[in-house]
Design a protein around this nucleic acid. Structure first.
Length: 311
DNA sequence: ACATCCCCTTAGCC
DNA sequence: AGGCTAAGGGGAT
């Protein structure tokens, strides 16, 4: 990877797809992050109080940020270009199903999001679809964040903990959060008063950090696992949502007792015990990069024609 | 048209 | 302990 300054204002990162495979498009489209949109040929996102503009042409990654400049290391860190993806994919490529997903989307990387934004995003994500989640996050940012106009478009920074903590349920509900308003507010107040230091959890082991996150209002196992995977470097976290349940029923049911499979097939939601069982299976089966496996399977399944939903 | 289901689930009640 | 249900609202079926 080389960093080069180009003729226009953008910086360039030269990738070598053999050593550093990366697919910006799939990485931003797979549903892990809710803050990016494509305008003409560039992806625009808001990260760390800055608007980031980025595009990839084969091995060449170009980016620019506003109002402050960010260096290539920031981009590298955010998109986890430091992950040894060929190694990770070889570790999880252990059956035909995951191999198909990897073949389709190799280059998809887990993003290293900001823990605070990731936490609130996934509390909002409860029982919502991805377009709706994006809208809630945008509404929160419009109402509580700071506007940045760049290239003729308006962007909004994500609110800080104090911005939400000092607000109230009605204000937050106006962002179309529905019943999630109280959970977001309570959690924001806990984080704001620093009763929980999210960044510190990065160095805490998964099992202990888990209990910390689960103590927050609106945070169950699924939300906790997403925050771990997408923002706290816990690549073994294996979130289980309705899609993963479908994948288990379709492709991995033989790894569970028939009675268990029958039970979860006939219900919408999982009990905490059932969730734990599936998530631990994912971790044991795929190993220390189970989270990567989850994301590839998830993204692949969402691209399949939607029939046999109850399979 | 119109109802019903679904949505990257959690919390509260029994 | 574990099963049941409610909780915005918009889009799909």
């Amino acid at each position: 990877m080389r960093f080069v300054k180009s003729l226009d204002a953008s910086l360039k990162i030269q990738l070598n797809q053999l050593i550093t495979p990366f697919d910006l498009e799939q990485t931003l489209r797979c549903g892990q992050s809710f803050r990016w949109r494509k305008l003409s040929d560039w992806w625009y996102g808001v990260v760390n109080e800055k608007v980031v503009k980025i595009r990839q042409i084969e091995d060449e990654l170009r980016f620019q940020s506003f109002p402050e400049k960010m260096n290539a290391n920031f981009v590298k860190n955010y998109f986890r270009l430091d992950d040894n993806l060929p190694h990770i994919l070889s570790q999880i490529s252990i059956d035909e199903h995951i191999r198909k997903a990897i073949q389709c989307f190799s280059g998809l990387r887990i993003i290293r999001q900001q823990p605070w934004e990731c936490l609130i995003s996934y509390i909002c994500a409860t029982y919502k679809n991805i377009p709706a989640i994006k809208e809630m996050i945008l509404n929160l940012s419009k109402r509580f964040g700071t506007k940045i106009t760049f290239n003729g478009h308006d962007f909004y920074t994500f609110p800080k903990p104090s911005d939400l903590a000092n607000s109230d349920c009605e204000e937050i509900r106006k962002c179309k959060l529905g019943f999630r308003d109280k959970r977001v507010l309570k959690t924001a107040r806990i984080i704001h008063k620093e009763k929980l230091d999210l960044e510190a959890l990065r160095k805490t082991d998964y099992e202990h950090a888990r209990n910390e996150l689960l103590s927050l209002p609106g945070v169950g196992q699924k939300v906790a696992d997403c925050v771990f995977l997408f923002s706290l470097d816990k690549l073994k976290a294996f979130p289980v949502d309705v899609w993963m349940k479908r994948i288990i029923l379709k492709n991995y049911s033989s790894y569970f007792e028939p009675l268990f499979i029958e039970k979860i097939r006939n219900k919408r939601s999982l009990t905490p015990h059932e969730y734990r069982k599936i998530s631990l299976f994912g971790q044991r089966y795929f190993g220390r990069y189970a989270g990567y496996a989850q994301e590839y399977l998830f993204h692949y399944e969402r691209h399949q024609p939607r029939q046999d939903l109850r399979l």
